[in-house]
Each structure stands twice: as C-alpha cells, then as structure tokens.
Design a protein around this nucleic acid. Structure first.
Lengths: 98, 98
DNA sequence: GTTATAGGCAAGTGGCCACTTGCCTGTCAA
DNA sequence: TTGACAGGCAAGTGGCCACTTGCCTATAAC
C-alpha cells in the first residue's frame, strides 16, 4: 500500500507541475530551455539549480526520462505513472459535461 | 493554470492517502471510526486531532464530503476531483498488461 | 589551448506543514 | 442534570523540502 510516495511528492509541487505542463506542450527540452521558458511564460523566477533539482524529483518518480546527447540532456515526459492514481481510487465515470 | 493546488496538497500526504483508501473500502465513516481503523489496520499512530485536520484538508480539496447527523459526522469519498489530473496530463492509453 | 556553454554536486537556510497539547462546544444516555 | 461521547479551535513545535550559494566536470566552439 502506498507503493509510490515519490509520485505524489513529485506532483505535489506547483513548479514541478508547471514543468510537466511545459513538457506536455513541448517534449524533449533541455535544462536551460526549460529554465528560460518557465521564467518567460509562467513568470517563475526559478534558478537553474532549482529546476535541475525539480527534474531529478520528476525523474525519480518516473514522470520524466532523460536522454543524453553530447553536452545536452533532453527531458522527456512519461505520464504513465499517473495511471496508478486513478487505479487506486477509481473515478466514477459520469460525464460532467452534457 | 494550476487551478487546484489544494488537490495536490491533499493527496501529497501519505496519511491522507491512507484515509482515502479507508473511505474507498468503507464509505461514510466517522472521525473516531477512521482513527481506530487507521491505527488497527495501517499501524498509523494518528491522533484524533491529526486525522481531523487531514479530513479538513481532504474536504477542502473536494475529495471528501461530510454529512452531519446528531453528534456524528460522516465522511464520504468523492474521487471526481482526481479527474482533473488525468485531464491535465493525458495518459497514453497503452495496456500495460497483456 | 582557451573560452563559453550545459550541467552536476554539496552544504546551508528559511518557510511551510504535520503533529501535538490543551481547552472548549454540542449531543445523547443514565 | 450529570457524565460520557463525538468533534472543534487555536497556539506551539519539530522536521522536511524548496531554494540558494559556491564550486566543479565535461562538451563544444574559437
């Protein structure tokens, strides 16, 4: 029971959720790419180290996979761990919209 | 963007997730009922006040609705707020099991 | 080689949050 | 009406975590 506390810790932070949003919109970004976009679009004054630590947490939760290429490190989104949430507490399939 | 930080805060705590598990198994429990079951089954040495505060957080997130009846207060699970998670980051519909 | 770029590592710090403690209110049975 | 029971309110405390700071490694351009 409660096999993945890392997952909930990962999505528990607002900045990390914004990072997931960013990767949803544009997958495979580098660290610096994410940094500039977070400050530009979302107004988050997140330093490079802060974003790097956030990405480490997201990677540990399995929500982000990394791919090294030269001196670049590309970050790819993986939403499959989120499935465990709706499997744990089944959502009543009611259409909220008509 | 990020309209419901209360939701992620609610499911961010392990004890609150266990409370959701308890309510999934048996809906409409009172505070004392939850307290004894959490200590019995899950080994959580959660005091009454702690569980009460957890329930308040869950209620604020819309995951738990309460129903007063005399001196009893019954807690009912509502998993519909969880839908916003999978709507925000769509899960690739791949069958992980054959 | 030298410099700039992309990223990593580790210690320190401040704020939030879970939990406790103590006391209070309301409901029901005797 | 008195006691037990179910729950609420508020202040205090300790620990975790996000963020910073400073320095380091590695790849690529010049």
């Amino acid at each position: 029971m409660d096999a993945d506390p890392d997952l909930f810790k990962a999505i528990g932070d607002a900045t990390r959720r914004t990072i997931l949003d960013e990767l949803t919109e544009r997958d495979g970004q580098t660290l610096f790419e994410l940094c500039s976009r977070l400050t530009m679009k979302h107004g988050l004054a997140s330093s490079r180290q802060a974003v790097s630590q956030h990405l480490a947490v997201l990677e540990q939760a399995g929500l982000v996979h990394t791919r090294r290429q030269g001196r670049y490190k590309f970050h790819h989104l993986d939403t499959s761990p989120l499935r465990s949430i709706v499997e744990r507490w089944p959502i009543d399939r009611e259409a909220p919209n008509p």
